[in-house]
Write a protein that binds this DNA or RNA. Structure first.
Lengths: 125, 125
DNA sequence: CCGAATCCCACAGGATACTG
DNA sequence: CAGTATCCTGTGGGATTCGG
């Protein structure tokens, strides 16, 4: 009953090794995707606006993350031929769809952070 | 629900660099947490049962992931003094709570995997 | 202002073998 | 059965500098 690469007859199964959904989980499972997508929740933002909202991210990693998400079709990158240059990023329909579970994760993290930190201190004894 | 890093007047903010919720996102953002927690959705499982459900994970990484989640208070580890040994893992209340957003992520991944793979192929041209 | 280009490295995590 | 114990590699991601 195992599925290989999600042939159309079987439902995709992230527990299966070669299922395509694994690569999607890998993308969400990087340090910044959740924050970048979350930051774009309210609408399009410029590169520098994203950087100020997301504290601690370096420009290089910012670019990497944005390119990866653009590649996946989660957001669009629009360059305006102006001086000084302006580049705006905006979620696609797919991206806004992703926003729902991602917001859920972020809210969960924010709500339970203190409890988890406390749990760790107890455990480390 | 109060946060630790920020004063109680402010809501926890995952976008802020030093907010505790960052560490929680870091934990979710590893390759296996989503799958391990998801696998325990239906109840307690033994080490070997987890390994067969989650294809591709090595015993060492399995142990690492389980210990980290135990430390966070997401699951419990119960050792039975038997021969052969038996160890069972079960979600805590916190873990079952985490299950909700995690399931959402996994379902999203499974639903949109094929589309994202297609997007990538288009982009890589 | 928006990145591209380099350099660098800690460390997650894979492979393999062994043990109480 | 349920893990350790080693060894090793890829790469995510940080710091810094440069360019259009």
């Amino acid at each position: 009953m195992e599925t290989i690469a999600s042939s159309s007859a079987f439902p995709p199964d992230a527990f299966a090794k070669d299922c395509a959904s694994r690569v999607v989980l890998d993308r969400i499972g990087d340090r910044w995707t959740v924050l970048v997508v979350g930051a774009l929740a309210d609408g399009r933002l410029r590169f520098s606006e994203l950087r100020t909202r997301i504290e601690g991210i370096t420009p290089k990693v910012m670019t990497q993350t944005l390119r990866a998400l653009e590649r996946d079709g989660v957001l669009t990158r629009t360059v305006y031929a102006e001086v000084p240059p302006r580049v705006e990023y905006e979620l696609t329909d797919l991206g806004r769809d992703l926003l729902v579970p991602i917001d859920a994760i972020r809210h969960w993290a924010e709500q339970h952070a203190s409890r988890i930190v406390a749990n760790r201190e107890v455990y480390d004894r």
